[in-house]
């Protein structure tokens, strides 16, 4: 059945989960870099999530999400066999895949899953993929094995040093750029501060740097401009012009500010949800 959750896996219990969803019409057209908009239930809001993987033969897509507020909490309540009410996609411009060299793909947090799909696209196009992934500690690291399946090099950093390099992904990136002249592109997907730091790291090297932006979206088809970002002094819509842009051109400060626009209401919605759940359980 369309939109049915075929497989659910808690990657980090209580925090991050992976869903494999039956969506043949999306799987048939999705490319690395594509995203979907979903609505969990009636009364629900539309939220964007990157497609972490697809299987065209089985007609499935994979999404990975961090439980952060009400909508992702509602998503987390669904189990295998349940269906997602509305699932729309694939959306956005697919990743532009350049060829003939080394591509360093940097991922942080849940962004590693999205980065993984882009890295796979680069690998399939014949590029040498170096994956650099980071998390606060070993337990919060995602998709290391999935990346190892095709990336010849997977470099890991943790903030606390519990696994791999102790420090930030940008330390590993800088070291790598100093050693290697064949890097044709750096891709970064993760929290805004991480993508901003990656762009700052690559700038002195003059390496093309692509970031996948996670702005607030409503329709996801270019109708409203909620997701607008400033890139090279021009206003662009992340949903139709992106979500990937030149990291050296993005106004990250503005993006950070815009992501905070609904914070108090997001908290109110989550609290309201928790209160209602509390009533139910009584």
């Amino acid at each position: 059945m369309s939109n049915m959750i075929l497989k659910k896996e808690q990657l980090i219990p209580g925090q991050t989960s992976k869903l494999v969803i039956d969506a043949p019409h999306i799987a048939a057209k999705a490319e690395p870099g594509s995203f979907i908009i979903l609505r969990v239930c009636e009364h629900g809001e539309r939220i964007p999530l990157t497609i972490a993987d697809t299987d065209r033969e089985k007609g499935t897509i994979t999404i990975v999400y961090l439980v952060l507020g009400k909508s992702t909490a509602l998503l987390e309540e669904l189990n295998e066999g349940d269906s997602i009410l509305d699932l729309c996609g694939p959306l956005g411009r697919p990743t532009h895949i350049s060829s003939g060299g080394t591509v360093i793909c940097v991922g942080g947090g849940t962004g590693i899953a999205a980065m993984h799909h882009i890295a796979k696209g680069h690998h399939n196009a014949g590029n040498h993929v170096v994956a650099i992934i980071g998390a606060r500690n070993k337990e919060l690291l995602l998709f290391e094995n999935e990346l190892k399946a095709f990336a010849p090099e997977v470099l890991v950093s943790t903030d606390d040093g519990s696994y791999g390099h102790k420090g930030l992904v940008t330390d590993l990136l800088r070291r790598r750029l100093e050693q290697d002249n064949n890097v044709i592109e750096v891709v970064a997907v993760g929290p805004v501060p991480m993508m901003e730091a990656v762009a700052a790291t690559t700038r002195p090297f003059g390496v093309k740097t692509t970031v996948s932006l996670n702005s607030i979206m409503v329709d996801g088809i270019g109708m409203c401009g909620a997701c607008r970002v400033t890139v090279g002094n021009e206003t662009r819509f992340a949903c139709v012009d992106g979500p990937e842009f030149d990291g050296h051109q993005v106004d990250f400060a503005e993006l950070r500010q815009r992501l905070n626009a609904f914070r108090p209401l997001e908290r109110e919605s989550y609290d309201h949800h928790c209160r209602c759940k509390c009533h139910e359980s009584k």
Partner: peptide, 12 residues
């Protein structure tokens, strides 16, 4: 999004 009925509806 029926945001006039927030938080009964989720769109803020």
């Amino acid at each position: 999004g029926r945001a006039y009925s927030f938080p009964e509806y989720d769109t803020p």
